[in-house]
């Protein structure tokens, strides 16, 4: 295991006591692309900060490639690459210098640093912007430079904290490609995200995290299969007072695996049966059906099932 987290806890004892991370255990295998999925404030960033030596845990242990990050942070950093949520590029230096100096910090000789920088600029399609300053870059480009810089010293594990926050869809896809490319180099990637598509698309394994705890951990396919449904119908009703009656009625329909009441109506989990839609509409019409949304089961469904809340709430 390249990343080992045992009983990790982080409590901020300010004016208000905040338990940001509440007993997390997780292991990431070498070469894996691992995702921490959860809403804002779930404790993902705190976990990453502790793993990357920028925060101290209240209790628990983290080892990266066998090195304890609390006992030997300076040694551990050699094996860690980080791309934080915000842009930390050196504003006073060009793109080339950013990567080049990063290599020098990590003990490269000048010739090695130059060669590595040129190779990375090539790999991340940045050669045309070599002399540009970070302030002249778009969000997507800056993110790519940050990833290139983070892996410049050939770390064993790369931590990406909300890598697609603030990126336009096109840049996000380019970033995903770049991250997939890293796996071919054998770099283990741990990323946090609150976009379920991102976790689904990129990760080999996903841990769903909420209120500082891991709720469930598996491959995206297994997580989705655990719902036991292919589709989710979300009904928006005018009259919510008699929802329990509707719930009971719907449960009797063939192909429906689960029904639950929501604030505005009903959520139905269904195993794809033909003609189910019209039956649902018929059943719901007397209650003033206002709107109907149909979704394929996603990691978001898993999160809703586990917490009763939306990821974005």
């Amino acid at each position: 295991m390249i990343v080992e987290i045992e009983g990790l806890q982080k409590i901020y004892n300010g004016r208000q006591r905040v338990v940001a991370v509440d007993g997390i255990d997780l292991n990431v295998r070498e070469g894996e692309l691992y995702g921490l999925l959860g809403p804002n404030g779930a404790g993902k960033t705190t976990t990453i900060s502790i793993c990357t030596t920028r925060a101290l845990p209240t209790s628990g242990r983290v080892r990266i490639a066998g090195v304890d990050v609390v006992a030997a942070p300076a040694i551990a950093r050699k094996g860690i690459g980080v791309v934080p949520q915000y842009n930390t590029l050196d504003r006073a230096c060009t793109i080339f210098e950013n990567i080049n100096f990063h290599c020098l910090y990590f003990g490269f000789s000048r010739a090695e640093a130059k060669a590595r920088t040129e190779q990375l600029l090539e790999q991340f399609h940045l050669t045309e912007r070599t002399g540009a300053y970070p302030s002249q870059l778009s969000g997507g480009l800056a993110q790519r430079v940050q990833i290139a810089r983070a892996i410049a010293h050939r770390p064993k594990v790369l931590f990406l904290d909300e890598p697609s926050a603030g990126l336009d869809p096109q840049s996000r896809i380019a970033m995903w490609d770049a991250v997939r490319g890293l796996r071919q180099e054998g770099i283990t990637v741990v990323l946090t995200t609150h976009y379920m598509e991102e976790a689904d698309e990129l990760c080999d394994r996903v841990a769903i995290i909420d209120h500082g705890k891991i709720l469930v951990e598996d491959t995206p396919a297994n997580l989705k299969a655990s719902i036991g449904a292919q589709r989710v119908y979300l009904l928006d009703l005018k009259d919510c007072s008699s929802v329990p009656v509707l719930v009971d009625g719907l449960k009797k329909l063939a192909g429906i695996t689960g029904v639950e009441a929501t604030d505005k109506g009903v959520r139905i989990f269904a195993q794809g049966a033909d003609g189910l839609l019209s039956e649902i509409v018929q059943a719901a019409n007397p209650y003033g059906l206002r709107d109907l949304t149909i979704n394929e089961t996603s990691l978001e469904t898993v999160f809703i099932r586990l917490t009763g809340r939306d990821l974005r709430e």
Binding site: T88, L89, R91
Partner: peptide, 15 residues
Amino acid sequence: VTREIDDRVMCPLPV
């Protein structure tokens, strides 16, 4: 504003 310091702190030497 810039949080550039986070990058400097990630250098492989004691903070």
